[in-house]
Protein backbone atom coordinates (compact mmCIF):
# COMPACT_ATOMS: atom_id res chain seq x y z
CA UNK A 1 0.00 0.00 0.00
CA UNK A 2 3.01 2.29 0.32
CA UNK A 3 3.21 2.31 -3.44
CA UNK A 4 0.12 4.38 -3.61
CA UNK A 5 1.70 7.34 -1.99
CA UNK A 6 4.79 7.06 -4.09
CA UNK A 7 2.83 7.14 -7.29
CA UNK A 8 0.60 9.93 -6.22
CA UNK A 9 3.46 12.30 -5.56
CA UNK A 10 3.77 14.49 -8.58
CA UNK A 11 7.13 16.15 -9.27
CA UNK A 12 5.55 19.56 -8.99
CA UNK A 13 3.78 18.69 -5.81
CA UNK A 14 6.35 19.95 -3.37
CA UNK A 15 6.25 23.44 -4.81
CA UNK A 16 2.57 24.05 -5.10
CA UNK A 17 1.41 21.97 -2.19
CA UNK A 18 0.52 24.68 0.18
CA UNK A 19 -0.76 27.11 -2.37
CA UNK A 20 -3.23 24.71 -3.94
CA UNK A 21 -4.34 23.25 -0.67
CA UNK A 22 -5.10 26.63 0.71
CA UNK A 23 -6.98 27.67 -2.37
CA UNK A 24 -8.97 24.46 -2.49
CA UNK A 25 -10.01 24.19 1.07
CA UNK A 26 -10.65 27.87 1.27
CA UNK A 27 -12.92 27.82 -1.70
CA UNK A 28 -14.74 24.82 -0.47
CA UNK A 29 -15.17 25.96 3.04
CA UNK A 30 -16.52 29.26 1.78
CA UNK A 31 -19.40 27.42 0.22
CA UNK A 32 -20.52 26.07 3.56
CA UNK A 33 -19.37 28.74 5.96
CA UNK A 34 -21.95 31.46 6.41
CA UNK A 35 -19.33 33.96 7.43
CA UNK A 36 -18.38 36.98 5.33
CA UNK A 37 -16.09 36.16 2.48
CA UNK A 38 -12.66 37.53 1.84
CA UNK A 39 -11.72 38.57 5.34
CA UNK A 40 -12.92 35.34 6.88
CA UNK A 41 -11.25 33.10 4.31
CA UNK A 42 -7.95 32.66 5.95
CA UNK A 43 -9.27 32.09 9.41
CA UNK A 44 -12.05 29.80 8.19
CA UNK A 45 -9.53 27.79 6.30
CA UNK A 46 -7.17 27.27 9.13
CA UNK A 47 -10.11 26.59 11.36
CA UNK A 48 -11.31 23.89 8.97
CA UNK A 49 -7.88 22.34 8.85
CA UNK A 50 -7.75 22.42 12.66
CA UNK A 51 -11.15 20.76 12.94
CA UNK A 52 -10.23 18.31 10.23
CA UNK A 53 -7.06 17.40 12.05
CA UNK A 54 -9.04 16.57 15.16
CA UNK A 55 -11.47 14.40 13.22
CA UNK A 56 -8.54 12.80 11.46
CA UNK A 57 -6.80 11.96 14.70
CA UNK A 58 -9.89 10.12 15.93
CA UNK A 59 -11.14 8.43 12.78
CA UNK A 60 -8.24 7.96 10.40
CA UNK A 61 -4.88 8.18 12.11
CA UNK A 62 -4.83 4.60 13.33
CA UNK A 63 -4.43 3.35 9.75
CA UNK A 64 -3.10 6.32 7.82
CA UNK A 65 -0.64 7.49 10.50
CA UNK A 66 -0.84 10.53 12.70
CA UNK A 67 0.49 12.82 10.02
CA UNK A 68 -1.11 11.07 7.06
CA UNK A 69 2.17 9.44 6.18
CA UNK A 70 0.55 6.01 5.95
CA UNK A 71 1.12 2.76 7.84
CA UNK A 72 1.03 -0.87 6.91
CA UNK A 73 -2.75 -0.72 7.34
CA UNK A 74 -3.40 2.26 5.13
CA UNK A 75 -1.74 4.24 2.36
CA UNK A 76 -0.20 7.65 2.76
CA UNK A 77 -2.61 10.48 2.20
CA UNK A 78 -0.02 13.02 1.25
CA UNK A 79 -0.99 14.35 -2.15
CA UNK A 80 -4.24 12.41 -2.58
CA UNK A 81 -6.13 15.69 -2.54
CA UNK A 82 -9.45 16.78 -1.17
CA UNK A 83 -11.34 15.05 -3.98
CA UNK A 84 -10.11 11.66 -2.81
CA UNK A 85 -11.20 12.35 0.77
CA UNK A 86 -14.56 13.66 -0.34
CA UNK A 87 -15.09 10.50 -2.42
CA UNK A 88 -13.81 7.95 0.08
CA UNK A 89 -15.51 9.40 3.15
CA UNK A 90 -18.49 10.80 1.26
CA UNK A 91 -19.43 7.36 -0.08
CA UNK A 92 -18.84 5.71 3.29
CA UNK A 93 -15.88 3.65 2.07
CA UNK A 94 -13.71 5.34 4.68
CA UNK A 95 -13.28 4.73 7.49
CA UNK A 96 -12.89 1.11 6.46
CA UNK A 97 -14.32 -1.51 8.76
CA UNK A 98 -12.59 -4.75 7.93
CA UNK A 99 -9.86 -5.89 5.64
CA UNK A 100 -10.96 -7.59 2.44
CA UNK A 101 -10.36 -7.68 -1.27
CA UNK A 102 -11.86 -4.26 -1.53
CA UNK A 103 -13.35 -1.61 0.77
CA UNK A 104 -17.08 -1.49 0.08
CA UNK A 105 -19.47 1.43 -0.03
CA UNK A 106 -21.21 1.87 3.35
CA UNK A 107 -23.40 4.22 5.31
CA UNK A 108 -21.72 7.61 5.53
CA UNK A 109 -20.85 8.41 9.13
CA UNK A 110 -19.62 11.99 8.78
CA UNK A 111 -21.65 15.05 7.88
CA UNK A 112 -20.69 16.90 4.71
CA UNK A 113 -19.24 19.70 6.86
CA UNK A 114 -17.03 17.21 8.70
CA UNK A 115 -15.99 15.61 5.41
CA UNK A 116 -15.00 19.04 4.12
CA UNK A 117 -12.92 19.62 7.23
CA UNK A 118 -11.21 16.26 6.83
CA UNK A 119 -10.63 17.02 3.16
CA UNK A 120 -9.16 20.40 4.06
CA UNK A 121 -6.77 18.77 6.48
CA UNK A 122 -5.67 16.04 4.07
CA UNK A 123 -5.31 18.55 1.25
CA UNK A 124 -3.04 20.56 3.50
CA UNK A 125 -0.67 17.57 3.64
CA UNK A 126 0.11 17.72 -0.05
CA UNK A 127 -1.51 18.90 -3.27
CA UNK A 128 -3.82 16.60 -5.18
CA UNK A 129 -7.07 16.63 -7.08
CA UNK A 130 -9.46 19.18 -5.67
CA UNK A 131 -13.08 18.50 -4.82
CA UNK A 132 -15.05 19.66 -7.85
CA UNK A 133 -17.61 22.42 -7.58
CA UNK A 134 -21.27 22.00 -8.39
CA UNK A 135 -20.85 23.70 -11.76
CA UNK A 136 -18.03 21.33 -12.68
CA UNK A 137 -20.10 18.22 -12.16
CA UNK A 138 -23.55 19.33 -13.20
CA UNK A 139 -24.26 17.32 -16.34
CA UNK A 140 -26.95 19.65 -17.63
CA UNK A 141 -26.48 20.48 -21.28
CA UNK A 142 -23.78 17.88 -21.73
CA UNK A 143 -23.63 15.66 -24.82
CA UNK A 144 -25.19 12.37 -23.72
CA UNK A 145 -24.39 10.57 -26.95
CA UNK A 146 -20.72 11.49 -26.78
CA UNK A 147 -20.77 10.55 -23.09
CA UNK A 148 -22.08 7.12 -24.05
CA UNK A 149 -19.26 6.59 -26.51
CA UNK A 150 -16.70 7.69 -23.91
CA UNK A 151 -18.38 5.49 -21.32
CA UNK A 152 -18.16 2.44 -23.58
CA UNK A 153 -14.52 3.16 -24.36
CA UNK A 154 -13.34 3.96 -20.84
CA UNK A 155 -15.80 2.67 -18.26
CA UNK A 156 -18.11 -0.10 -19.52
CA UNK A 157 -15.37 -2.72 -19.51
CA UNK A 158 -15.54 -2.73 -15.71
CA UNK A 159 -18.84 -1.07 -14.84
CA UNK A 160 -21.05 -2.72 -17.55
CA UNK A 161 -22.99 -1.02 -20.35
CA UNK A 162 -25.21 0.98 -18.07
CA UNK A 163 -23.06 1.08 -14.96
CA UNK A 164 -24.39 -1.97 -13.13
CA UNK A 165 -20.90 -2.96 -12.04
CA UNK A 166 -18.85 -6.08 -12.67
CA UNK A 167 -16.21 -8.46 -11.39
CA UNK A 168 -12.45 -7.94 -11.23
CA UNK A 169 -9.77 -10.39 -10.18
CA UNK A 170 -9.67 -12.18 -6.82
CA UNK A 171 -12.92 -10.88 -5.36
CA UNK A 172 -12.42 -7.27 -6.34
CA UNK A 173 -15.18 -5.63 -8.29
CA UNK A 174 -16.22 -2.47 -10.05
CA UNK A 175 -19.20 -1.17 -8.08
CA UNK A 176 -22.59 -0.28 -9.48
CA UNK A 177 -22.98 3.39 -10.43
CA UNK A 178 -26.66 3.40 -9.58
CA UNK A 179 -27.49 6.31 -7.30
CA UNK A 180 -23.92 7.59 -7.18
CA UNK A 181 -23.92 11.40 -7.20
CA UNK A 182 -22.36 13.27 -10.13
CA UNK A 183 -19.79 14.71 -7.74
CA UNK A 184 -18.65 11.27 -6.59
CA UNK A 185 -18.48 9.94 -10.15
CA UNK A 186 -16.40 12.95 -11.06
CA UNK A 187 -14.11 12.47 -8.09
CA UNK A 188 -13.68 8.78 -8.84
CA UNK A 189 -12.56 9.58 -12.38
CA UNK A 190 -10.20 12.24 -11.08
CA UNK A 191 -8.61 10.28 -8.26
CA UNK A 192 -8.90 6.61 -9.22
CA UNK A 193 -9.99 5.14 -5.90
CA UNK A 194 -8.61 1.76 -4.86
CA UNK A 195 -7.90 -0.25 -8.00
CA UNK A 196 -9.75 2.00 -10.38
CA UNK A 197 -7.39 3.82 -12.72
CA UNK A 198 -7.68 7.59 -12.75
CA UNK A 199 -8.86 9.64 -15.71
CA UNK A 200 -7.17 12.96 -14.98
CA UNK A 201 -8.11 16.21 -16.66
CA UNK A 202 -5.02 15.94 -18.85
CA UNK A 203 -6.46 12.94 -20.70
CA UNK A 204 -10.14 13.28 -19.85
CA UNK A 205 -11.02 16.97 -19.64
CA UNK A 206 -13.86 18.32 -17.55
CA UNK A 207 -16.27 18.49 -20.49
CA UNK A 208 -15.79 14.81 -21.30
CA UNK A 209 -16.29 13.91 -17.66
CA UNK A 210 -19.57 15.81 -17.69
CA UNK A 211 -20.64 13.98 -20.84
CA UNK A 212 -19.97 10.68 -19.12
CA UNK A 213 -21.89 11.71 -16.00
CA UNK A 214 -24.78 12.83 -18.17
CA UNK A 215 -24.80 9.45 -19.90
CA UNK A 216 -24.73 7.52 -16.63
CA UNK A 217 -27.61 9.59 -15.31
CA UNK A 218 -29.52 9.05 -18.55
CA UNK A 219 -29.20 5.28 -18.60
CA UNK A 220 -28.98 4.46 -14.92
CA UNK A 221 -30.94 7.18 -13.15
CA UNK A 222 -34.00 6.83 -11.00
CA UNK A 223 -36.25 7.91 -13.83
CA UNK A 224 -34.48 5.99 -16.57
CA UNK A 225 -37.16 4.33 -18.63
CA UNK A 226 -36.99 0.63 -19.32
CA UNK A 227 -39.47 0.57 -22.19
CA UNK A 228 -39.53 -3.18 -22.60
CA UNK A 229 -40.54 -3.85 -19.00
CA UNK A 230 -38.71 -4.96 -15.89
CA UNK A 231 -34.99 -4.90 -16.57
CA UNK A 232 -33.88 -8.07 -14.71
CA UNK A 233 -30.93 -6.15 -13.31
CA UNK A 234 -29.67 -5.08 -16.76
CA UNK A 235 -27.12 -7.84 -16.51
CA UNK A 236 -27.54 -9.25 -19.97
CA UNK A 237 -27.96 -12.81 -21.16
CA UNK A 238 -27.24 -14.58 -17.88
CA UNK A 239 -30.20 -13.13 -16.04
CA UNK A 240 -32.30 -13.43 -19.19
CA UNK A 241 -31.37 -17.07 -19.57
CA UNK A 242 -32.12 -17.82 -15.93
CA UNK A 243 -35.46 -16.09 -16.28
CA UNK A 244 -36.31 -17.93 -19.49
CA UNK A 245 -35.59 -21.25 -17.80
CA UNK A 246 -37.16 -20.70 -14.42
CA UNK A 247 -40.12 -18.47 -15.17
CA UNK A 248 -40.59 -18.85 -18.92
CA UNK A 249 -40.21 -22.59 -19.26
CA UNK A 250 -41.44 -23.04 -15.69
CA UNK A 251 -44.73 -21.30 -16.44
CA UNK A 252 -45.16 -23.25 -19.67
CA UNK A 253 -44.53 -26.57 -17.93
CA UNK A 254 -47.05 -25.60 -15.26
CA UNK A 255 -49.54 -24.95 -18.06
CA UNK A 256 -48.60 -28.28 -19.67
CA UNK A 257 -49.29 -30.07 -16.39
CA UNK A 258 -52.74 -28.51 -16.31
CA UNK A 259 -53.44 -29.41 -19.93
CA UNK A 260 -52.39 -33.03 -19.49
CA UNK A 261 -53.82 -33.67 -16.01
CA UNK A 262 -56.88 -35.82 -15.61
CA UNK A 263 -60.02 -33.90 -14.89
CA UNK A 264 -61.46 -34.41 -11.41
CA UNK A 265 -63.66 -37.46 -11.30
CA UNK A 266 -67.12 -37.36 -9.84
CA UNK A 267 -66.42 -39.89 -7.14
CA UNK A 268 -63.46 -41.65 -5.77
CA UNK A 269 -63.96 -45.33 -5.86
Amino acid sequence: MKKLSARRRHPLAAVVVLLLALAATGGLYAAFAPAGKAQADETAQSLAIEEGKKLYAVGCASCHGTGGQGTTDGPSLVGVGSAAVDFQVGTGRMPAQQPGAQVPKKKVIYTQAQIDQLAAYVASLGAGPITPTESQTNPEGADIGRGGELFRTNCAQCHNFTGEGGALTHGKYAPSLEGVSPKHIYEAMQTGPQNMPSFPDSTMPEKEKKDIIAYVKAVNGEETPSPGGFGLGNLGPVSEGLFAWIFGLGALIAVAVWVAAHTAKAKKS
Binding site: R7, R8, H10, L150, T153, N154, G192, P197, S198, F199, P200, S202, T203, M204, P205, E208
Partner: peptide, 21 residues
Protein backbone atom coordinates in the same frame (compact mmCIF):
# COMPACT_ATOMS: atom_id res chain seq x y z
CA UNK B 1 -4.16 10.13 -30.43
CA UNK B 2 -6.13 10.23 -27.18
CA UNK B 3 -9.53 8.69 -27.97
CA UNK B 4 -11.27 10.94 -25.45
CA UNK B 5 -10.15 14.24 -26.92
CA UNK B 6 -8.92 13.17 -30.37
CA UNK B 7 -5.78 15.20 -29.59
CA UNK B 8 -2.24 13.80 -29.63
CA UNK B 9 -1.04 12.70 -26.21
CA UNK B 10 1.87 14.40 -24.49
CA UNK B 11 4.04 12.47 -22.09
CA UNK B 12 3.12 14.66 -19.13
CA UNK B 13 -0.61 14.07 -19.78
CA UNK B 14 -0.25 10.47 -18.72
CA UNK B 15 0.07 10.28 -14.95
CA UNK B 16 0.82 7.25 -12.84
CA UNK B 17 -2.33 5.28 -12.09
CA UNK B 18 -4.27 6.65 -15.03
CA UNK B 19 -5.63 4.74 -18.01
CA UNK B 20 -5.92 6.15 -21.50
CA UNK B 21 -6.85 4.65 -24.85
Amino acid sequence: INQNTMEPLRAEDVVVGSLTF
